[in-house]
Design a protein around this nucleic acid. Structure first.
Lengths: 334, 334
DNA sequence: AGCTCATATGGAATCGATTCCATATGTAAA
DNA sequence: TTTACATATGGAATCGATTCCATATGAGCT
């Protein structure tokens, strides 16, 4: 592959002039323009992005981290993020953690070794690690759907507490009193998805309900997990919960499938509420009652904030608080 | 951020020695090792990936192109590709075309400007363009589920012709004679998904069946598309096809949903066959009869071939022809 | 003592583009 | 005619890491 030096030589000009030509600098005469263009065409030259990146100390690459692509929520979210970043001329480097915090570490190291200008974290394993990086690289990190205690990292935070509460109150008002709860995080831990869990705990307290510990499930993500939970619940078939609040539509769908396979009808025997309103939620064997996350607004907002912080330019933020509202979608499963 | 020069100065050694230390070169004495380590820790130094890339003329980045992330087939496929590339220490730069060939051009330009060492194309818009790049960069391109005429680009090609034929023969044997066909490509064009379409055309010929042109749909991708097709089919409600062969589970699901909403029962009134066996297919309101693509094997094979071509090393290919078989999964929709 | 070879080290050259500096020419204003 | 400023250009210095080259020391062998 040709270099700028070869172009300069072939066109009979200096490298500076070629560089000015490439970057549309005004001070290049028409006759040199023509010669340079000819040389570039003949040698089929394209500037090395790497060399430009080294010199300019910026890559036009953004890193995006999710936990698992096979989760349709993240797939859709990423789809929207990628489209928007592409509009602004950025490339996207992407990683998934699959719950492995070493992968997160490797991902964040890309900030340190300058492979990316900034990152969007749609999933956080190790909050301490992220706090540490945020201290070294303020303005280069945006959290999406992940809170941080001290609130010192730019974040897109939706009101999951309220949304969860709404979902639970809906179930309560329908007469349900024996709840099961499924989270993707830990039930006691202050991190991932905690505001949802906190809402559940507060809900129990408010209504003076007790909870069977065997009906609380942590670290559940997939439809397969949901099926296993169904089997767990059915071990003691004399006593089943009458409502299940889940953290994800995937889990809800596996759960419903396995329950119905065993003659337990949803929502007649058990009501189930999902989370996300993933695209297939409406097409499931029992269309899901679920909490919709405004994916497009979330993605656009995250990109807006990151690019604004990176460039100091005022990309107009046309995403409002209203756009970022979670909403209970009532279908058939509860 | 510190540079290697500052480390050298602080440790009282030459830059060469620091570099040798970083790259585990043997000729570094123990006392300098200690001094260098101390300097690195104190300055919190990490080598610039960009500088290394420039010097070494390689990035350890692989580009992956898909048409649309929100399509669960691609999301799953990408999930597997990313995991495997990560295992081998590669980062992944990803783009989606959303049917826009300009995006494909921009993506491929990354080969030319050296931002990626190689690419996996799981979706091709403009075959001529790809052929051109393949000529300039043999060994750096792998096609996944996309054929090329002259067969000169490394490709993972499954037998979609046979799989489609199997699906159609299954429907024929069940007594269906009036077919509708839905493709994501063009019905006449020789490109995207053509071997499936060819199978359909041959199938019609073999059984001397005629086809109503209004029952052929091209460029259909989403559940929404499927719903619209249902409406199209129902315009003339006196005469409906008795079987629909689709190119994707997403389309099938939208189609089924809209038909049943209008009192047309699947599979009693119309049989429908999907494609992909996306994770959700088994959980749909009518569990889908569909053709399963062996996603993991496909992803692993694509990465194996690409890395083998890039490094000349013999990464052992443990994916066999058998692993790459498509399979008709019979459920309830046909 | 003289020779060879492994071990060790510093620093210049290099990768390829950008930018600054020195310099030259042309033209309008004083 | 002198001054001033816009236009135009070549090339050295720079970004940060790697590698080659020159050189030095010490051990082992004859």
């Amino acid at each position: 592959m040709a270099t700028i030096k070869e172009i300069a030589k072939k066109a009979g000009v200096g490298v500076g002039t070629v560089s000015r030509y490439l970057n549309n600098h005004p001070y290049v005469s028409d006759d040199k323009r023509i010669k340079i263009k000819k040389a570039i065409d003949e040698l089929n030259y394209t500037p090395s992005a790497i060399a430009t990146q080294l010199r300019s100390n910026s890559t036009k690459n953004i890193g995006v981290l999710v936990s698992r692509f096979a989760n349709p929520f993240f797939a859709e979210l990423f789809d929207a993020i990628e489209r928007k970043l592409n509009q602004f001329g950025y490339q996207v480097l992407v990683s998934q953690t699959h719950d492995d915090s070493a992968a997160e570490q490797r991902f964040l190291d890309q900030l340190k070794n300058k492979q990316v200008d900034g990152v969007i974290l749609a999933s956080v394993e190790n909050h301490q690690l992220v706090e540490k990086f945020a201290k070294s690289y303020p303005n280069k990190i945006v959290l999406l759907n992940e809170e941080n205690k001290d609130n010192n990292i730019p974040s897109i935070v939706l009101n999951h507490y309220q949304a969860t509460m709404n979902g639970l109150e809906y179930l309560y008002q329908k007469g349900h009193r024996n709840f099961s709860y499924i989270t993707g995080g830990d039930y006691d831990n202050k991190h991932h998805g905690y505001s949802r869990t906190k809402a559940f705990q507060d809900f129990l307290k408010t209504h003076q309900l007790s909870i069977n510990n065997k009906w609380v499930f942590s670290q559940q993500h997939t439809a397969l997990d949901g099926q296993k939970i169904a089997q767990d619940l059915m071990i003691d078939s004399r006593k089943l919960p009458d409502a299940v609040f889940t953290n994800s539509d995937e889990v809800a769908i596996g759960l419903i499938n396995e329950l119905q396979k065993n003659g337990i009808h949803v929502p007649k025997d058990i009501a189930i509420v999902g989370y996300d309103d993933q695209p297939f939620a409406r097409f499931a064997e029992v269309p899901l009652t679920t909490i919709r996350q405004p994916i497009n607004a979330m993605a656009n907002k995250a990109v807006d904030i990151l690019l604004k912080n990176l460039t100091d330019s005022n990309i107009d933020e046309n995403i409002t608080e209203q756009d970022l509202k979670l909403k209970l979608i009532i279908r058939k499963s509860a």
